[in-house]
Design a protein around this nucleic acid. Structure first.
Ligand SMILES: [Mn+2]
Ligand SMILES: [Mn+2]
Ligand SMILES: [Zn+2]
Ligand SMILES: [Zn+2]
Lengths: 157, 157
DNA sequence: ATCTAAACTGGAATGATTCCGAAATGGAAA
DNA sequence: TTTCCATTTCGGAATCATTCCAGTTTAGAT
């Protein structure tokens, strides 16, 4: 099981010593209920508002950031488009429609032949993006502080 | 061959009826010379400036955008980090270091066992990102204007 | 009931990217 | 070669998702 649930998330918050607040409950419910949509910050904000009066957007940002950092959910980051949140932690391919923005999960069978898989799902593959994030050899060597650091904003080398 | 070269890019511009300007030449040279770094807009701007006096940042943005749209290069888009440009059009995995931001190419052998490959390259995989961009079944159906449209900024469904 | 570190808040700041109208120019046509 | 105009360039303002901040509230331990 790798899919988020209301109770599962609450339990994890407790385990990690994070506080259970009305705002967090509302956000959790919004996340779980809309997980198939890979909801963005604004949808979560709107849905959470229906459950508790006045949740600030700042809180939604902070909370989704915290949850992602803690590994409760994953954030799918885009350029000039709000980040989207993933409630399925299992490794799979997200089929992102360039036209309507819909993101669909495609769970990969043991062995892959990526393009075919997508085609079989009726998805017209125009471009692929596969990335691994982690630490390069150099950084692994001099690993002084491999705290989960955000990617540097500037500088290329 | 799938790697950009000065002459190749110039030829493609001509083929597509785009004008050859000093600014574009400078940007092309900057792209080719730094292709291994997956340079960002600012590096390209800085390098291009060395070749022709006064290239505006707007022009660099416009040019890299145009080149990407035409398929001469690919843009790797990130959240809160400047986009990076790819001069190797062959399908491969980009190993993105969360620590120093370095992006390394890893060309995939016929059949993949992704994680192992990365490990063999000395890269510590912490997270994976694999995405296909294209058109979902629904959009392919009612494909009226499948022009390369930018992803909608808002709205989830 | 008390207390404090954590969480929340609204508004300001950030920064990469886009947008804009005006000026410059590549290169086709004469 | 000169003319001409669609394309390109320019710089400054605008955009907008996200982050930051300083003050206030609160969950939950004691
Ligand atoms: Mn998914
Ligand atoms: Mn690459
Ligand atoms: Zn679609
Ligand atoms: Zn590194």
């Amino acid at each position: 099981m790798e899919t988020i649930t209301r109770e599962g998330l609450i339990r994890q918050l407790k385990e990690k010593g994070l506080k259970i607040t009305p705002q967090r409950i509302a956000i959790i419910e919004a996340l779980v209920e809309n997980r198939l949509l890979h909801p963005g910050t604004n949808l979560i904000h709107a849905e959470a508002r229906k459950k508790t009066k006045n949740i600030s957007l700042s809180t939604v940002y902070a909370t989704l950031g915290e949850f992602s950092q803690q590994g409760l959910i994953k954030s799918l980051e885009f350029d000039r488009m709000e980040n989207r949140y993933e409630g399925d932690l299992e490794e799979h391919i997200n089929l992102v429609c360039r036209h309507c923005g819909k993101i669909t999960d495609y769970h990969i069978p043991p062995s892959i032949e990526p393009k075919d898989i997508a085609r079989r799902a009726g998805f017209l593959v125009m471009d692929a993006r596969m990335e691994y994030y982690g630490y390069c050899r150099d950084c692994t060597m001099k690993r002084k502080d491999l705290n989960v650091a955000r990617q540097p904003k500037k500088g290329v080398a």
